[in-house]
C-alpha cells in the first residue's frame, strides 16, 4: 500500500464511522423482531440470541467458523462465458452481474476453499445468496465441478453449503444443464470413495435442491431453512389451498425423511468433524486403522 492509503484511508473510515447511526449497530431479528446488538449477533454467527432464528451469514464468516481463522485457502475459480445467451430482460444480464459483483465483491454466487478438519483434507463450497439469489449458472456449475475435482486430488471430503433460489434464468438451458453437470461431478467423487456432506441453508430450492444438494452421503440443514423444489407460491396457486404449517422447513423435511439432521449453526463444525472421523478413517504409516477418538478433543477450539 502507498503512503496515500496509510494516511487517507483511516480518515475516510472515521468519517464513515461518525455517520453510523443506532440502526447499523442494531439488527432486527427476522424471526422474533427483537433488536440485537451487532457484537452479540456476530458472536452468535448471525443466529438470534433470543429466538434462535438463523439469519444469513457471509461465506467468509462461515469458512472461518468451519476451518478456523487462517485455516483455509480460497481457490480462484475457472472463468466462464460472460453472457452465453446474450440475455436481456428489463435489464441486460451483464449489468445485473456487474451490480452483484460490486455489491458482494465476488465474481459469482459461490466460494470454494480448502483446509483441514480433524487433520482430514476438506474442500468446501459455499453458495452466496446475496449474489443473484445464489442462482446456479455455468459459473456455479463450474465451481462445483472444480471443488469435486480438488477433493479427489486431495483425497479429501467435500462439504457444500447451499443457499439458492435455483437455476439462473438468464443462462437459460445452460443453467438447467448444470444440474446434470454437478451431479456427474458428485458421482465421480463418490466413486472415488470420498464423502460428500450437503448442508442446506435458508433457502435451498429449485435446481440446486434437485441436483447436488439432495445427493449428499449425509444431508444436514440449518434450523428453519426453507428447502424444496417448487416455490411455495407456485404450489399454492396450483393446488389452491393453504399450505400446511412449517411446510418446506428443515424440521418438516426431517420428519418426512429427507434429511439426516437439523443442526444449529454453532454445532455444524463439531457435527461435520464427527462425520468425517467416521467416514474417513486415518491410516497409520503401516496402513493400520487408527482408533476413532472418543470425543472431539482434536476439535477443542472452534473459531
Amino acid at each position: 500500500m502507498s503512503w496515500l492509503s496509510d494516511l487517507a484511508l483511516p480518515k475516510i473510515r472515521d468519517l464513515v464511522r461518525k455517520t453510523q447511526t443506532e440502526e447499523t449497530l442494531w439488527t432486527k431479528c427476522h424471526g422474533c423482531e427483537q433488536m440485537i446488538f451487532h457484537r452479540d449477533l456476530e458472536a452468535a454467527m448471525n443466529v438470534c440470541p433470543h429466538c434462535g432464528f438463523h439469519m444469513r451469514i457471509a461465506p467468509d464468516v462461515r469458512l472461518r467458523a468451519l476451518f478456523g481463522d487462517g485455516g483455509f485457502t480460497v481457490i480462484e475459480l475457472p472463468r466462464v462465458k460472460a453472457d452465453p445467451l446474450r440475455f436481456r430482460d428489463r435489464k441486460r444480464y451483464p449489468d445485473r452481474i456487474r451490480e452483484a459483483r460490486v455489491r458482494t465483491g465476488r465474481r459469482d454466487a459461490i466460494v470454494v476453499a480448502h483446509g483441514e478438519i480433524g487433520s482430514r483434507p476438506v474442500v468446501c463450497a459455499i453458495l452466496d445468496f446475496d449474489f443473484m439469489g445464489g442462482s446456479m449458472g455455468t459459473a456455479v456449475g463450474e465451481a462445483i465441478v472444480a471443488a469435486a475435482r480438488l477433493a479427489r486430488l486431495q483425497e479429501g471430503a467435500l462439504v457444500i453449503f447451499s443457499a439458492s433460489g435455483g437455476a439462473r434464468m438468464q443462462e437459460g438451458i445452460l443453467s438447467l444443464m448444470q444440474m446434470a453437470r454437478t451431479t456427474a461431478a458428485i458421482a465421480e467423487l463418490k466413486e472415488a470413495g470420498l464423502p460428500y456432506i450437503s448442508v442446506m441453508t435458508n433457502p435451498t430450492t429449485g435446481g440446486v435442491t434437485a441436483s447436488f444438494a439432495m445427493l449428499g452421503d449425509v444431508s444436514i440443514a440449518e434450523p428453519g431453512a426453507i428447502i424444496g423444489f417448487a416455490g411455495a407460491r407456485v404450489i399454492e396457486e396450483t393446488i389452491r389451498e393453504k399450505l400446511p404449517d412449517g411446510f418446506q422447513r428443515a424440521e418438516y423435511l426431517l420428519e418426512h425423511g429427507m434429511l439426516d439432521m437439523v443442526a444449529p449453526r454453532s454445532e455444524l463444525r463439531r457435527r461435520i468433524a464427527s462425520l468425517l472421523r467416521h467416514l474417513m478413517p486415518v491410516r497409520s504409516r503401516e496402513g493400520a486403522l487408527l482408533p476413532v477418538p472418543a470425543n472431539d478433543a482434536e476439535e477443542a477450539a472452534p473459531a
Binding site: A210, I227, A230, T238, Q248, Y252, H256
Partner: peptide, 16 residues
C-alpha cells in the same frame, strides 16, 4: 408442484 410431491422429496427424486 404439490404438497405431497414436496413431502415425498420431489427434488431428491429428480436428483437421483
Amino acid at each position: 408442484p404439490g404438497v405431497g410431491a414436496e413431502e415425498r422429496g420431489q427434488a431428491e427424486a429428480i436428483a437421483r
